[in-house]
Design a protein around this nucleic acid. Structure first.
Length: 800
RNA sequence: GCCACUGUGGCGGAAUUGGCAGACGCACUUGACUCAAAAUCAAGCGGGUAACACCGUGCCGGUUCGAGUCCGGCCAGUGGCACCA
């Protein structure tokens, strides 16, 4: 048979669609498998080869599971709210709804042309009011449970996109969307109290099957530290200066304190501060710096001493000066620190610059040169002197602190609360009404969805106001509580909202009464296997785990964690080895590949190109290699002959079933395909194969190249769809050859190989080895000191 | 600076976890077929040698009968976090 991919690929795609063979059924006797891939953002550029690689892994697993007799849910949808579409809408004066619909159509066609076995009856679109109704519903539930709050604070603001960004969206001080510098701006911000879930998010990681580096990154992101809050009294004022430290046991080494430039203490006591103007000038200077500049680790510390406020060290009564400096951040801890220059490099640099005393309290290092952060005996520390164990000295100091009532043990997280509003049009409207009498009032649940009104102009306001703010009919409303004239919140939710729960909606996508029915959730959840990119490990995954855990806590879902298992795909780089980008002109369009080599070749190649988790450059010639392989597969039909079973070939097939099966589970798709290539080489070398063996071969290949395998199945009179046929099984006893070739070493160096029967005794193996002419020559006139035989693996003779 | 990972032919990458390094694919070379080219088929393909020997998994050392794999110390690179108190 010839491999006419242009003819057979559309043919089978049509048949699968018509007979809906990938449609998931809720419930039943079969075991369930819920495979999930990160749904695409339907950009105008269309599908990227990266999408193909990302989806092909779970595609292969889902197809294998179906053949193994599972009831499989493998859905797809579109994460369609967001800035790129809105920016395109502004540029082209086209409504984002029109653009989104067009892009979704294009994406769907493209996905279908690759033959992915998605259940197309469950497609969701986050911009569909029937969908975002439930996004809003979850938000209101969080509001109801005190997880939503509003604050006027300094936020990350992108002056180019005119939008407030979360920390996650402004990593490195650059806007995640347009990459311009993010500035700090005082704004009214809606927050989700994700920090309240920090411990639950950490705890949840213990039971899930994520790659170790993924877990590690999430742990780092949450950034839990344990330490103590200590209150320092300040001479002449009522308020205490509260600090957070991880080393309360170094309290005797405190020689100054530092507060963040934005610390409220300064304005509160400006009358007592002699150099208030200088402090304000310094503060203005800091505000000009971008977050990025400010967080650069610099030796050259800046700051100003507060003239008029002096703190008292609560353990020894010493007077200590207070500085403001921008190396202390308002956003972490209490925005104030006790500085121990002897044992913290930042404090050390600051003390050196400002000529402040450095008191060593931990023995070790050379503090004339740098701070000592290691362990050692406590010195100059009164009752702590002589302690050598960090844990013990911290414990002892905490006792003292609590006894004196000057503080308490506490924890801190690097993770901050989630800034949740955006001053943009193309997002879920935040269902809150501002009433002059009642304050912030939730839109009643029965009024959901709160629909996004149509507007003509999507341009954000100059002062960073949402385009919705200009629509009076939308803004002006009555308070749902008291009926007073009120105004709607006009900001929308961030891009991450819709993707924080989408996997739940696939389970029950058309339910008008609930986000998903509990019996269906009970059946399908958790997601058994979720594949995606490393870039979503700290944002989307943390957010969705947070939402899911909240929904669990209020009894809406049945599992604490949404994803039982996570895998990560590596990037596909351009043929030049650089990251693919339009500007570099090294982008590969998957549709071009489908046209030239076929969907099966494309699918096979993206999984064959290398270690699935690692980045690898695209190589057109290698795609050709995969196409060549598929042509040889098609040619197998011409080799089918009746006849006796070839025992060598039988072992090869059983080994292949075993390897392909286990490699798929281990995301080692490259070696699974290589194994089939080796097998086909062996078949061609033999020049024939049985019909039964051909069936095994196409079953093993079917998850990778389903169109061709279906076509072969049909051509040899197979019944029904191969995609639903039974996955082959192997017999462990038949995976081992009767005779094995093993290496023979002399003094640890390989000299030759011998053939021995499988499971042969040490004596026989050694005798065979010694009988070998080459080995015999090497042993001539030498004594054998040691004889090693590792069964079925190696013989090593140590001679002198 | 901190955390995690990686380093193997001309290239992408294998190596049952301590047991024949380089599977499989690409590229390349030679031959067959062809008027010719492409495609296909056959053979070869780490270095070295006429052939052996021998040398080879970033570098230095160690453990072991045996190390790509384990240990110690470097070097280089990737990803993430980052004045986090």
């Amino acid at each position: 048979m010839r491999h006419e991919f242009k003819k057979i690929e559309p043919k089978w795609q049509k048949k699968w669609a018509e007979q809906e063979i990938f449609k998931a059924v809720d419930g039943g006797e079969k075991p369930k498998f819920y495979g999930l891939v990160e749904f695409p953002y339907p950009s105008g550029a269309g599908m990227h080869v990266g999408h193909i690689k990302a989806y092909s892994s779970i595609e292969v697993v889902a197809r294998k599971r179906r053949m193994e007799g599972y009831n499989v849910l493998f859905p797809i949808g579109f994460d369609a709210f967001g800035l790129p579409t809105e920016n395109y809408a502004i540029k082209t004066s086209t409504h984002p709804r029109i653009i989104t619909d067009k892009n979704i159509r294009k994406f769907s066609e493209q996905l279908k042309s690759v033959g992915f076995s998605f259940d197309w009856s469950r497609v969701i679109d986050t911009t569909d009011a029937d969908y975002y109704k439930w996004t809003q519903w979850i938000f209101l539930k969080m509001f109801e449970h005190g997880l939503v709050f509003r604050d006027k604070t300094l936020v990350n603001y992108c002056p180019s996109c005119k939008v407030v960004l979360s920390n996650e969206d402004s990593q490195g001080g650059k806007c995640d969307i347009c990459h311009s510098d993010v500035i700090q701006k005082s704004k009214d911000v809606w927050y989700l109290r994700i920090t309240e879930y920090a411990d639950k998010l950490l705890e949840g990681l213990e039971k899930v099957d994520y790659p170790a580096n993924v877990k590690q990154q999430q742990v780092n992101w949450i950034g839990k530290s344990t330490g103590a809050f200590v209150n320092f009294s300040v001479e002449g004022i009522e308020d205490q200066l509260r600090i957070y430290t991880t080393r309360p046991d170094t309290l005797f080494g405190v020689t100054f304190m530092v507060i963040a430039p934005e610390h409220p203490l300064i304005d509160k006591y400006k009358d007592r501060i002699a150099n208030y103007d200088a402090l304000c000038a310094y503060r203005a200077e800091c505000a000009k710096k971008t977050e990025f500049e400010r967080t650069q680790l610099v030796k050259d510390k800046t700051g100003v001493c507060i003239d008029g406020l002096t703190a008292i060290n609560p353990v020894n009564g010493k007077q200590i000066p207070i500085y403001i400096a921008d190396y202390v951040m308002m956003g972490y801890g209490t925005g104030a620190i006790m500085a121990v220059p002897a044992h913290d490099q930042r404090d050390y640099d600051f003390a050196k610059k400002f000529g402040i005393d450095i008191i060593q309290v931990i023995q070790g290092g050379d503090i004339s040169k740098e701070a000592y952060a290691g362990d050692g005996e406590m010195i100059n520390s009164d009752f702590l002197n002589g302690y050598t164990n960090k844990k013990d000295s911290i414990h002892r100091m905490l006792e003292e602190i609590e006894k004196k009532g000057i503080g308490e043990a506490g924890v801190q997280y690097k993770m901050k609360d989630w800034a949740f509003n955006r001053q943009r049009y193309w997002g879920e409207p935040i269902p809150i009404v501002h009433c002059p009498v009642c304050g912030d009032v939730a839109v009643p649940y029965e009024e959901l969805p709160l629909r996004l009104p149509d507007v003509e102009d999507f341009q954000p306001g100059e002062d960073g106001e949402s385009p919705l703010a200009r629509i009076e009919s939308y803004v002006n409303c009555k308070c749902p509580k008291c009926g007073h004239d009120a105004k709607r919140e006009t900001d929308t939710m961030p891009q991450w909202a819709g993707s924080s729960w989408y996997f739940l909606r696939y389970i029950d996508p058309h339910n008008d009464d609930e986000l998903a029915a509990m019996d269906k959730l009970n059946y399908w959840m958790p997601v058994d296997w979720y594949n995606g990119g490393m870039e979503h490990v700290t944002r989307h995954m943390i957010y969705s785990r947070f939402w899911h855990r909240f929904l669990y806590d209020i009894g809406v879902v049945n599992t604490k964690e949404p994803y039982a298992k996570r895998s990560i795909q590596g990037l596909i780089l351009g043929p030049d080895g650089d990251k693919m980008s339009k500007s570099k002109g090294n982008v590969v369009d998957p549709l071009d590949i489908v046209k030239e080599y076929g969907a099966d070749a494309l699918r096979t190649y993206v999984l064959f190109m290398g270690d699935y988790g690692a980045a690898a450059p695209w190589n057109d010639s290698s795609v050709k290699g995969c196409k060549r392989f598929l042509e040889r597969v098609a040619g197998l039909t011409d080799l089918v002959t009746d006849g006796a079973v070839d025992p060598d070939m039988e072992v090869k097939f059983h080994k292949a079933i075993k390897k392909v099966s286990s490699d798929i589970e281990a995301t080692k798709f490259n070696t699974a395909i290589a194994c089939l290539m080796t097998l086909i080489n062996d078949i061609y070398a033999a020049g024939k194969l049985s019909r039964e063996d051909l069936v095994i071969f196409i079953k093993l290949l079917c998850p990778f190249a389903p169109h061709l395998c279906e076509e072969i199945w049909e051509s040899i009179g197979g019944e029904g769809f191969l995609s639903l046929a039974k996955w082959p099984e192997y017999d462990e006893a038949k995976t081992v050859e009767a005779k094995l070739e093993i290496g023979v070493q002399v003094n640890g160096k390989l000299k030759t190989t011998i053939v021995i029967p499988n499971g042969c005794s040490k004596e026989d193996a050694l005798a065979t080895a010694k009988a070998d002419a080459k080995i015999a020559a090497l042993m001539e006139g030498k004594n054998v000191v040691k004889e090693i035989y590792v069964p079925n693996k190696i013989v090593n003779l140590v001679i002198k």
